[in-house]
Design a protein around this nucleic acid. Structure first.
Lengths: 248, 248
DNA sequence: CGCGATTTTGATCAATGTCAAAGGTGGTGG
DNA sequence: CCACCACCTTTGACATTGATCAAAATCGCG
């Protein structure tokens, strides 16, 4: 299921009115005239669900902040298997690699209609050297990314299928809660196909379907048509099996 | 098996003679007098195999560069399962989190006797703001960490037990090759217990044992007593199932 | 209404986990 | 130098999870 948005993806009028500015690299740059941001930003770009922002192996001269929609970062193996590495939600800055001139180590696929803010890598690097606060900001963003990847590894490596699904959905709810209207009332828009969950969690899509059915029958959650309803937060949290050290 | 080193862990005489300086944050600071490094560095510390540098949930006021030995970064679940998130090899900088005042999200366990260079977080943050090149360096280090975590996710999520083991061992060889003497001659020192492989790869240690036996019988590799011998690089690479896009 | 994509279902099978016991290996202390 | 001990690895039997295959049902959309 490719999630054509009901409304077109939101594109900000200007950096001033950008809803996700505070979450990405731009948040570090407090110039009222936006002179630095103007040097950094190349364009806005709108892409349809299913399209590829960049592919693994591609040479990509850009960096991005996701303004609206969902993007999946993934790799492909020779066997044809696709592994989703991370989900980008609005505000996410991505595309940065150690060596900005070599091929992309992963791809970025639009899971919904999407709008992104595009930076030129060359300009970005230049600003990185001349604006210290930009680099500092980037370290914070990277640190957060790393923590999320640690979560993901733990999820895929250490939990059962039910636990993985419960955990991933919970995490996504948590991330949504920070900037999405649907935080209230136990219903969340999570525009993923079961196939995407499977690819992120290292499961087959058939088994994802079966497991979701189980969770539905056990009144834990209903996930349908890209909409998640949490029936039993308690059961869900228990299933999710959060790290003890972080609870204690 | 806890890998007591034959020799005591190497501690550099001074930052000048530090063998891993170029690989960590210090590599960014080119002051001959080492005045900046002196502000940054708090101490050297030597720890025995099996000890914990820090535990998940702990408040830790330090940051580290591994000088000698191996460290495993891990999480613990309520179920008791331990998930190894990443292996730190000499030169690795670690302990950095988005919010440097909150509890550690993971633990660091010494897999061998170890020596680390200790930085104070407070001093580090101060230098981060005043020395732009330090922050830039940190973004490069973080980007490399992220790429490695992407590898790890792909490995755990998308490969069979044989593929995971082959892949992990190959990656470790690659990393060793960069600074270890044993690069030549197809024999590598990898001081991990099968139990560690299992915890990193999301497998049971019994099955790791069985799979290693299979790889041994099929003349792919022999992993024993913390020593890895590669019998058939070709078969190993095939098993490892490297990302096609990166090969093509 | 019909088509393509997604999800569901049922049957079967392979990969991997669990349990328990035996065998190794290195370290330690007498 | 030997013997013991703790921990790691191996082995075999068995249980279970999750994959695979194929077909039917459903859904979104034109």
């Amino acid at each position: 299921m490719l999630w054509k948005s009901i409304r077109p993806p939101r594109v900000p009028e200007s950096c001033h009115s950008c809803r996700v500015r505070g979450q990405t690299v731009c948040g570090a740059l407090y110039d009222k005239r936006l002179t630095v941001l103007r040097k950094l930003k190349r364009a806005d770009r709108v892409l349809p669900a299913g399209s590829q922002l960049y592919r693994p192996g591609e040479n990509c001269g850009e960096l991005y902040t996701l303004q609206d929609g969902w993007i999946g970062l993934y790799r492909i193996l020779p066997s044809g298997r696709r592994q989703i590495l991370d989900f980008a939600l609005p505000g996410q800055f991505f595309g940065y690699q150690e060596n900005l001139t070599t091929a992309m180590l992963h791809g970025a696929e639009c899971l919904t209609d999407v709008s992104v803010c595009v930076y030129s890598r060359r300009d970005f690097l230049r600003q990185l050297d001349s604006r210290p606060e930009l680099a500092v900001r980037l370290t914070a963003i990277a640190a957060r990314d790393i923590a999320r990847l640690h979560d993901h590894i733990t999820n895929v490596g250490a939990r059962s299928a039910r636990g993985r699904i419960a955990n991933l959905l919970m995490e996504l709810c948590g991330r949504l809660g920070r900037h999405d209207v649907h935080g209230r009332g136990q219903i969340f828009d999570i525009p993923l196909a079961q196939h995407d969950l499977a690819d992120a969690l290292g499961l087959s899509s058939v088994y994802v379907s079966q497991t979701l059915k189980l969770l539905r029958e056990q009144r834990v959650l209903v996930f349908r048509n890209g909409r998640l309803q949490i029936l039993s937060p308690v059961a869900l949290a228990e299933l999710a099996d959060i790290e003890s050290s972080l609870v204690a």
